[in-house]
């Protein structure tokens, strides 16, 4: 099975690469190869997850973010190079029993889903993938800042039409098939798939929902956050972000989900 699938996966990747190179050649001839990450300048940013009850904004340092979600084919290459992340070898400490359960075999996803974003991956597996690339998962504030952009605006959160489009995705409950990774329109920064495709792991998933007072925090912090979140619901777009936050806070690091994928990020100084 694995042997039969491998050349197809390779072919698809080559096609993808050629495709992105062509796209880039049309846009800017300066680069020889398509950069897989976009540079995002960061800045002071109003967040749905205030660092403290009195601070509504946070400072995000410049960073690089993958333009698309990591695909099954991408992840298959990682698994091949580091077999301890195969679904039949992974330690249960790092991934639950549904890890890569949608793949055709332990080594390969199957050609039909090769280009789709990889899902059924745990935080540990996603982190290890990015680390193998010399990168890391994006932090929540980085992700939130990048996702505030529409195709044309750096911060489109006040744009009601754009907001509605995003919210529509959440009301579409029966999505039978994931779109291919990188198939959605590029936003202001040239980043795709931030909305309407999958939930995404963030590096600091364990830091979401933590209250100041750590005693008895599991329940208290959840209520405390939800309370504060509800107060912030003057703008509709926060609803989408709060859903993301709620989803992330419910995911423990070894958990996997068929609607949870990831992309990698790096500090701005890192190579594209």
């Amino acid at each position: 099975m694995a042997r039969r699938n491998a050349p197809k996966v390779l072919l698809i990747n080559t096609a993808q690469r050629i495709g992105s190179v062509c796209l880039l050649a049309l846009g800017a001839a300066a680069h020889a190869a398509a950069p897989t990450t976009a540079l995002i300048e960061g800045g002071r940013f109003e967040t749905v997850l205030p660092p403290t009850p009195d601070t509504k904004t946070t400072q995000v340092a410049p960073f690089r973010l993958d333009r698309a979600l990591v695909s099954n084919a991408d992840f298959a290459r990682f698994v091949k190079a580091t077999p301890q992340w195969r679904r039949d070898r992974v330690a249960r400490l790092f991934a639950d029993e549904q890890y890569l359960s949608h793949w055709a075999s332990a080594a390969a996803p199957g050609a039909d889903i090769a280009r789709q974003p990889v899902t059924h991956v745990s935080w540990f597996a996603a982190s290890a993938y990015c680390e193998a690339r010399g990168q890391r998962l994006p932090r929540w504030y980085e992700w939130e800042l990048a996702a505030a952009a529409s195709e044309t605006e750096r911060d489109a959160r006040a744009n009601s039409e754009w907001r509605q489009r995003i919210l529509d995705w959440y009301s579409t409950s029966a999505r039978s098939k994931l779109p291919d990774a990188g198939a959605s329109p590029a936003n202001y920064y040239g980043v795709r798939d931030l909305h309407g495709v999958a939930w995404e792991w963030v590096e600091d998933v364990g830091g979401i929902f933590v209250s100041e007072d750590s005693r008895g925090q599991q329940d208290v912090s959840l209520q405390k956050f939800c309370g504060a979140g509800a107060l912030d619901l003057e703008q509709k777009e926060n609803f989408e972000m709060l859903m993301r936050v709620a989803m992330l806070s419910s995911m423990k690091p070894p958990y996997t989900s068929g609607s949870m994928g990831f992309r990698c990020a790096a500090d701005a100084g890192a190579a594209p």
Binding site: T55, G206, G207, F209
Partner: peptide, 27 residues
């Protein structure tokens, strides 16, 4: 930092560095 993050994840400990340098964490 990366090791602390993974150890916390494996133990299911939640934590976050606060702007004032303290940590908010589950115990």
């Amino acid at each position: 930092e990366a090791a602390v993050r993974r150890i916390a994840a494996a133990l299911n400990v939640q934590y976050r560095r606060m702007p004032n340098g303290t940590f908010s964490h589950s115990t």
